[in-house]
Design a protein around this nucleic acid. Structure first.
Length: 460
DNA sequence: CTAGGGTTAG
C-alpha cells in the first residue's frame, strides 16, 4: 500500500519538477525534490532526466553531467533518455566529440541508442555545417532498420535548407509525401522558413497554401516566418498586416513577433516606430531573452545612445542572460558609428578571446565604420589581416576606395574578390571601371572588364 | 523529451 502511494507521489513530483524546469525555475525544482525526499518520496530516473535536460539548456553541459553523477550516487541507473538528454545538451553547444563519447558510454553500459539519439547526432552534424556526415547518419538509421520519427524528417529538411541544399530538401519533402508520410505543421514551417531564407518567397507561398489546404492551422511560428519573408521581399504593408492578424489571434504572447517588426523598422530607418514596439515589450512585462535585449540594444546603438545601450546590457546580465556574438556585433557597429574605435576594438578582442565561432560580421562592421570615418588605411590594414573574407568585406572596401578615388587599389581588390568566386554589387563594379577610365587607366579598366566577363561565363 | 520562428555588417 505504502509503495503504491510512494510511486504515485513520485509521478506527482515529476509533473511538478517538469513544469518548474520548463519555466527555468531550477532552484524551485530542487526544493520540490528535497522536500519530497524529506517526506519519503524518492526521485526516479524521470526526475533526473528532466533535471538533466533543464540544466543542459539553462546552465551548461557540465551542469548536466553533474546531475548524471548525482543520480548514479543515488543508485538510479541512467537510461536511453538520460543519455539522449545529454547528447542534446552537447549538440546545443556544438560539441560533437562529446556526442560520440556519450554514445560510446551508452554502448558500454548496454543502453541502446534509439531514434532520438541518432536524430540529435544528425542535428549536431548539421549545426556544424557537415551535411554529408549528417546524411550518413540518416542512411545509418535506415540501414539499422530503426523506425524513423516524423522529427527525423524535420531535422533533415531543416539541416539541408540551412546548409544551402534547399533543392534537396524540397525533393526529400516531395518524396516522403509520395511514400505516404503526412507532413506535420512543423514540417511545413521548417520548409517555408528554409525557402524564405534562400530567397524563394514564391515557393514558400505555395507551401503556405498547401499547409492550409492539408488541414493544418498556422501557428505563431508560421506567422512569424511568413512575416519575416514579407519584410525580406520589401513587402512591408503585407508583413504588418500579418502582424496585425497575429495580434488579433492572440499569437503575440511573447517578444518574437515584436522583435521581427522592430528590426525591420530599424533597418528602414523608422526609429520612432521601432521605439514604440520595443517600448511596448519592455513596459508590458514580456519575458525578455538575450535576442530581445539585442534588438533593444540595437535600437539605442543605432540612435547613438550608447550609454542607454550599456544600461540595457547590464539589465540583461542582471537577469542572468549572457551576451552573445550578436550583442557584441551590435555594440561594435554602434561604437564605430560614434567614432569610438578603441572600445569597438575591445569588443572584437573579447569576441576572439571568448572563441565566438565567427566574427566575420563584426569585422565587416568594424571595417565599414573605419571607412565611413575616413580611416581607409586602418581599414586596409584590418582587411589584410583577416583570414576569412566574404563579398561584404570586399564590397565595403571597394566602395570606399572608389569614394576616395583610389581606383587602382579598388580594382586590385575587385579582382581578388572575383577570383574568390564572390559576387559584388554591379554599381561597385561600374564604379571601379568608370573610375579607372576617368583617371587615365583605360587599359586597366579594359582588363577588369574582361575579367568580370570571364567570371560571368565561368559562373553561369 | 530532445527538432521549427525573432537579433549583427555593405
Amino acid at each position: 500500500m505504502w509503495s503504491i502511494k510512494g510511486r504515485l507521489s513520485t509521478r506527482l513530483m515529476n509533473i511538478c519538477v517538469a513544469s518548474l524546469c520548463k519555466a527555468k525555475q531550477l532552484e524551485k525544482a530542487e526544493v520540490v525534490i528535497v522536500d519530497g525526499i524529506r517526506i519519503g518520496v524518492q526521485p526516479d530516473v524521470v526526475t533526473y532526466n528532466t533535471l538533466i535536460t533543464a540544466y543542459c539548456r539553462f546552465v551548461g553541459i557540465d551542469a548536466g553531467y553533474s546531475i548524471l553523477y548525482r543520480m548514479k550516487e543515488a543508485g538510479i541507473y541512467p537510461d536511453t533518455i538520460t543519455y539522449n538528454s545529454l547528447i542534446a545538451g552537447a549538440t546545443r553547444y556544438c560539441m560533437l566529440s562529446r556526442c560520440f563519447d556519450l554514445l560510446e558510454e551508452m554502448l558500454e553500459m548496454s543502453i541502446l541508442p534509439d531514434i532520438w539519439s541518432y536524430n540529435t547526432l544528425m542535428h549536431c552534424f548539421f549545426k556544424l555545417r557537415k551535411p554529408d556526415e549528417a546524411y550518413r547518419v540518416f542512411q545509418d538509421i535506415l540501414l539499422k532498420d530503426i523506425s524513423v520519427h516524423p522529427a527525423t524528417f524535420n531535422i533533415l529538411i531543416n539541416g539541408l535548407c540551412m546548409n544551402g541544399y534547399t533543392e534537396n530538401a524540397l525533393m526529400l519533402f516531395r518524396s516522403i509525401k509520395r511514400h505516404g508520410f503526412i507532413p506535420q505543421l512543423a514540417t511545413y514551417n521548417i520548409l517555408i522558413h528554409g525557402l524564405c531564407k534562400s530567397g524563394r518567397g514564391k515557393t514558400a507561398r505555395e507551401f503556405l497554401n498547401e499547409l492550409v489546404e492539408s488541414g493544418h492551422i498556422p501557428n505563431a511560428i508560421t506567422y512569424t516566418t511568413v512575416m519575416k519573408c514579407c519584410f525580406r521581399c520589401r513587402q512591408f504593408e503585407e508583413g504588418l498586416k500579418i502582424f496585425a492578424e497575429m495580434r488579433r489571434k492572440g499569437y503575440t504572447y511573447d517578444a518574437f513577433a515584436y522583435c521581427t517588426v522592430a528590426s525591420m523598422l530599424l533597418k528602414t530607418g523608422k526609429m520612432n516606430e521601432a521605439n514604440e514596439y520595443l517600448g511596448y515589450i519592455i513596459t508590458n512585462g514580456f519575458d525578455l531573452d538575450i535576442v530581445s535585449f539585442n534588438t533593444i540594444v540595437n535600437l539605442y546603438c543605432k540612435e547613438g545612445q550608447l550609454d542607454i545601450a550599456y544600461k540595457m546590457l547590464h539589465e540583461a546580465e542582471k537577469k542572468g542572460l549572457e551576451s552573445d556574438k550578436y550583442t557584441h556585433t551590435i555594440f561594435i557597429d554602434g561604437l564605430c558609428r560614434t567614432g569610438n574605435f578603441k572600445e569597438a576594438q575591445q569588443h572584437l578582442d573579447y569576441m576572439s578571446m571568448m572563441g565566438f565561432d565567427s566574427n566575420l560580421v563584426a569585422l565587416n562592421s568594424f571595417i565599414n565604420g573605419l571607412c565611413k570615418a575616413g580611416h581607409l588605411d586602418h581599414a586596409l590594414r584590418m582587411f589584410e589581416s583577416m583570414d576569412a573574407k566574404d563579398s561584404i568585406t570586399y564590397s565595403t572596401m571597394v566602395h570606399s576606395l572608389c569614394n576616395a578615388r583610389r581606383f587602382r587599389a579598388a580594382s586590385k581588390l575587385l579582382l581578388s574578390c572575383i577570383r574568390g568566386g564572390m559576387r559584388i554589387l554591379k554599381s561597385d563594379k561600374r564604379g571601379v571601371i568608370d573610375g579607372l577610365r576617368g583617371s587615365g587607366y583605360s587599359q586597366e579598366a579594359r582588363k577588369v572588364q574582361s575579367k568580370i566577363r570571364l567570371a560571368k561565363i565561368l559562373h553561369d
